[in-house]
């Protein structure tokens, strides 16, 4: 009577002693081989891991080296300085732009106005304030103020030209009073300013 189901009846032959030893050797070898394979795989992985760890250590050493920390410190300082410089430049640009909007009266402007002045007109005062130049004049011909204002306006050099008619008699206290019949005031608004 058999002890259990005979799955491997072919190996139960009593007369097969040498063959059984061979098979036994093969099985043991296979076991040892599998053990070796497992160990080899483990060793390969372990060595790879060690290599990776070594690389990480080397890279960490580089990252914590004075060269890198000094470079980062330099860069940090440089970046904050560059930011401040950019803002400084921007603010200076605003100043420059704002300044460029302001009119810059000079002798060439006064000469240009003089060239448009009728021959009988005499200036008694020039006052410039808030982009507006006020010319107080005397003249002999009552059309001269209109001619003067029109010429100034037509020149296109000014943002606006205005005058409020004429009054009889020269400006009080002016040198030209005796020889002049009329007084008038021309207001010229200069271009390029923030004229209100």
């Amino acid at each position: 009577m058999r002890r259990d189901i005979n799955f491997f009846s072919v190996y139960h032959s009593q007369s097969d002693g040498d063959g059984a030893n061979k098979i036994q050797m093969i099985l043991l070898s296979a076991l040892a081989g599998s053990l070796i394979i497992v160990l080899v795989i483990f060793t390969v992985i372990k060595f790879s891991d060690l290599a990776v760890i070594n690389t990480i250590n080397a890279q960490n050493q580089y990252l914590s080296s004075p060269t890198v920390s000094q470079a980062r410190q330099t860069l940090s300082g440089t970046r904050s300085k560059l930011g401040a410089l950019a803002q400084y430049k921007q603010a200076a640009g605003r100043v420059s732009y704002g300044y460029s909007l302001l009119p810059q009266p000079d002798s060439s402007l006064l000469t240009a106005i003089a060239k448009m002045e009728p021959s009988d007109v005499t200036l008694t005062s020039i006052v410039y304030s808030d982009d507006v130049m006020t010319l107080t004049c005397t003249c002999k011909d009552n059309q001269s103020p209109a001619i003067f204002a029109h010429t100034l306006d037509a020149s296109g050099k000014f943002a606006g030209v205005n005058y409020n008619g004429i009054t009889t008699g020269g400006a009080a206290g002016s040198a030209s009073t005796a020889n002049s019949d009329y007084t008038f005031t021309v207001m010229i608004t200069l271009k390029g300013g923030t004229a209100k």
């Binding site: 300044y99 200036l123 020039i126 006052v127 410039y128």
Partner: peptide
């Protein structure tokens, strides 16, 4: 900037 001026005798 010359914001104002006046010529007077």
């Amino acid at each position: 900037s010359v914001s104002g001026f006046s010529y007077k005798i």
